[in-house]
Amino acid sequence: MQGTIRKTSHSLYLWAAAFMLSAVGTASATVVMNGTRYIYVAGAKEITVKVSNVGKLPALTQTWIDDGDEKSTPEHVDVPFNLTPPIARLEAGKSQTLRISYTGGELPSDRESLFWVNILEVPPKPKADEDLNKLQLAFRYRLKLFYRPNGLPGSADAAPGKLTWRRTTDGGLSASNPTPFHVTLNDVRVNIGDSDVLVEPFAIPPLGTVTAISPQPLSAGRELRVEYKSINDYGGFVPHSKTVEAP
């Protein structure tokens, strides 16, 4: 989740930006989703995202899909998906179903493609008799959307266990993904003797290699093991353990 105020040409963005006042205040998100990632399997008619307002006041939501540019705005995205409704008023205690449909396009057939579902939550406009000297924030959520072609070899569940880990020549750590699935990692730790080196979470694209950020050089000349957790299709964490290979 990202709590942001972004000023763009769109009226909802302008409204949100206009209420960033100088006085100190508090803000909390009231819109929640039924998942952290969504899988669109090729051939599906549509998939849905459930959005709920758990607060005590109505909220206005704006939604769109981008292909990886977090600075994207609804007017300038070009993706092969249709998302409805793009703007909705969500009453307190109520839910809204977003529908995502694939409109066709040239996407790779030998690997997954990654997109992002954006949900902007705009708080209600203060009433005339309310104190205006308070901070109001528009919260923007970005959730992963994977387009998964049919017939890919292997499975998304098995992909994290097929990663290969290697020390780089400068004492860093790299991970290679030989599968056609995206792999997202959390809680990555390299065992060095009696201690662990914690590495920042990262994701590895299909058939790709990523060099992780290690807070200290990894020791050479000794066996290292990496313990990590992958995030599955349902947002669950699955533990793994692999040997780190020499450069």
Rank of each mutant, 00 (worst) to 15 (best):
residue 1 M to I: 12
residue 1 M to T: 09
residue 2 Q to I: 12
residue 4 T to Q: 07
residue 6 R to Q: 11
residue 7 K to W: 09
residue 8 T to F: 04
residue 10 H to R: 12
residue 10 H to P: 00
residue 11 S to K: 13
residue 12 L to W: 14
residue 13 Y to K: 04
residue 14 L to M: 12
residue 14 L to N: 09
residue 17 A to P: 04
residue 19 F to D: 00
residue 21 L to G: 00
residue 25 G to A: 00
residue 26 T to Q: 08
residue 27 A to V: 03
residue 28 S to N: 09
residue 29 A to R: 13
residue 30 T to W: 11
residue 30 T to G: 02
residue 32 V to E: 08
residue 32 V to T: 10
residue 34 N to Y: 10
residue 35 G to N: 11
residue 35 G to M: 06
residue 36 T to L: 11
residue 37 R to Q: 11
residue 42 A to N: 06
residue 42 A to F: 09
residue 42 A to P: 02
residue 48 T to G: 01
residue 48 T to R: 15
residue 49 V to G: 01
residue 51 V to L: 07
residue 51 V to D: 02
residue 54 V to P: 00
residue 61 T to R: 03
residue 61 T to M: 09
residue 61 T to S: 02
residue 61 T to Y: 02
residue 63 T to D: 04
residue 65 I to M: 08
residue 74 P to W: 14
residue 75 E to F: 14
residue 77 V to W: 15
residue 83 L to Q: 08
residue 86 P to S: 05
residue 89 R to K: 14
residue 91 E to R: 13
residue 93 G to Y: 14
residue 95 S to F: 08
residue 97 T to K: 13
residue 99 R to M: 05
residue 102 Y to P: 01
residue 106 E to C: 02
residue 108 P to D: 05
residue 109 S to G: 04
residue 110 D to M: 10
residue 110 D to R: 15
residue 116 W to I: 04
residue 122 V to T: 12
residue 123 P to N: 06
residue 123 P to H: 07
residue 126 P to H: 04
residue 127 K to W: 11
residue 128 A to E: 05
residue 131 D to T: 05
residue 132 L to W: 11
residue 133 N to I: 00
residue 135 L to R: 00
residue 138 A to R: 01
residue 140 R to D: 03
residue 141 Y to D: 07
residue 141 Y to Q: 10
residue 144 K to P: 02
residue 146 F to E: 02
residue 153 P to S: 08
residue 153 P to G: 05
residue 157 D to K: 15
residue 160 P to M: 13
residue 161 G to Q: 10
residue 162 K to D: 01
residue 165 W to K: 06
residue 166 R to F: 07
residue 167 R to K: 13
residue 168 T to S: 06
residue 169 T to W: 13
residue 171 G to D: 07
residue 172 G to A: 05
residue 172 G to M: 08
residue 174 S to I: 12
residue 177 N to S: 07
residue 178 P to F: 14
residue 179 T to V: 08
residue 180 P to Y: 12
residue 182 H to R: 12
residue 183 V to P: 00
residue 187 D to R: 13
residue 192 I to C: 06
residue 193 G to Q: 11
residue 194 D to I: 10
residue 194 D to L: 13
residue 194 D to P: 00
residue 196 D to T: 09
residue 200 E to G: 04
residue 202 F to E: 02
residue 203 A to Y: 14
residue 206 P to H: 14
residue 206 P to N: 10
residue 208 G to V: 11
residue 212 A to E: 02
residue 213 I to Q: 09
residue 214 S to Q: 04
residue 214 S to N: 06
residue 221 G to D: 11
residue 223 E to D: 09
residue 223 E to N: 10
residue 225 R to Q: 13
residue 226 V to K: 01
residue 230 S to C: 08
residue 231 I to L: 12
residue 234 Y to H: 13
residue 235 G to F: 15
residue 239 P to I: 15
residue 241 S to N: 09
residue 244 V to N: 02
residue 245 E to R: 15
